Simulated assay, not measured.
Amino acid sequence: MSFFGYRKWPTPASFCVLRPLWPFLAAGSITIYYVAKIQDMAVRSPEYAKDPKNPHASQIANSAAH
């Protein structure tokens, strides 16, 4: 039986969808990891560690005191 003229198609398995996309998923996860690492290094740099606009300044000061 067709519903509004459409035939029933099988839903693709997640493996079939993810298989051609694995290079993009791997590259995206690597990029997100390194961007977060660079951002953390930039926030903790001495130039911005004492900036009052830095939202992590108190955490940096507490970790530097130990």
Rank of each mutant, 00 (worst) to 15 (best):
M1N: 10
M1T: 12
M1F: 13
S2T: 15
F3C: 15
F4A: 15
F4R: 15
G5V: 07
G5D: 05
Y6A: 08
Y6Q: 08
Y6I: 11
Y6K: 09
R7K: 09
K8Y: 14
W9D: 12
W9A: 13
W9G: 10
P10H: 15
P10R: 14
T11M: 09
T11C: 06
T11P: 03
P12V: 10
P12H: 08
P12T: 11
F15A: 13
C16S: 15
V17E: 02
V17Q: 01
V17H: 01
L18I: 03
R19W: 14
R19P: 00
R19T: 10
R19L: 12
P20M: 07
P20H: 04
W22H: 07
W22A: 06
W22M: 08
W22Q: 05
W22D: 05
P23E: 00
P23Q: 00
P23V: 01
F24A: 09
F24W: 12
F24E: 08
L25T: 11
L25P: 11
L25C: 13
G28Q: 05
G28C: 07
G28I: 05
G28P: 11
S29F: 06
S29N: 05
S29D: 01
S29T: 07
S29G: 02
I30G: 05
T31N: 11
T31A: 15
I32N: 03
I32E: 09
Y33E: 13
Y33V: 09
Y34W: 12
Y34H: 05
Y34M: 10
Y34T: 06
V35A: 07
V35N: 01
A36Q: 15
A36M: 14
K37H: 07
K37V: 04
K37I: 03
I38L: 12
I38P: 00
I38R: 07
I38A: 12
I38F: 11
Q39V: 11
Q39S: 14
D40G: 08
D40Q: 09
M41I: 06
A42H: 14
R44G: 10
R44D: 13
R44V: 06
S45T: 05
S45Q: 09
S45E: 04
S45L: 04
S45K: 08
P46R: 09
E47S: 12
E47K: 15
E47M: 13
Y48E: 05
Y48D: 06
A49P: 03
A49H: 02
A49F: 12
K50S: 13
K50T: 08
D51K: 00
D51N: 02
D51M: 02
P52C: 03
K53E: 12
K53L: 10
N54I: 02
N54Y: 02
N54D: 05
N54L: 03
P55Q: 01
H56A: 02
H56F: 08
H56T: 00
H56E: 01
H56Y: 04
A57M: 03
A57P: 03
A57W: 01
S58I: 09
S58G: 08
S58A: 12
Q59T: 02
Q59C: 01
Q59G: 00
Q59S: 03
Q59R: 00
I60T: 00
I60Q: 00
S63F: 06
S63H: 05
A64K: 14
A65F: 11
A65S: 15
H66Y: 03
H66P: 01
